[in-house]
């Protein structure tokens, strides 16, 4: 694994495509968890409304 491989992204040592793939999992997870949290909040607000 040569240190000067132009494909490697600093500082992780992943290639650009690998880094993008890891990033896509992060994005996917954030989206799913965000949607779940939103839905859960709506349902809780329906059951036991807060702020009036």
């Amino acid at each position: 694994m040569p240190d000067n491989d132009p494909d490697k992204v600093w500082p992780t040592g992943l290639t650009l495509r690998e880094a993008e793939e890891v990033h896509s999992y992060l994005i996917d997870g954030t989206r799913v968890f965000g949607a779940i949290a939103l839905l859960a909040h709506i349902l809780v607000a329906v059951t036991t409304p807060w702020l009036g």
Binding site: M1, D3, N4, K8, W10, P11, T12, G13
Partner: peptide, 8 residues
């Protein structure tokens, strides 16, 4: 290169 080596 120092950081890359460490990380590797």
């Amino acid at each position: 290169s120092f950081a890359l080596r460490r990380v590797a």
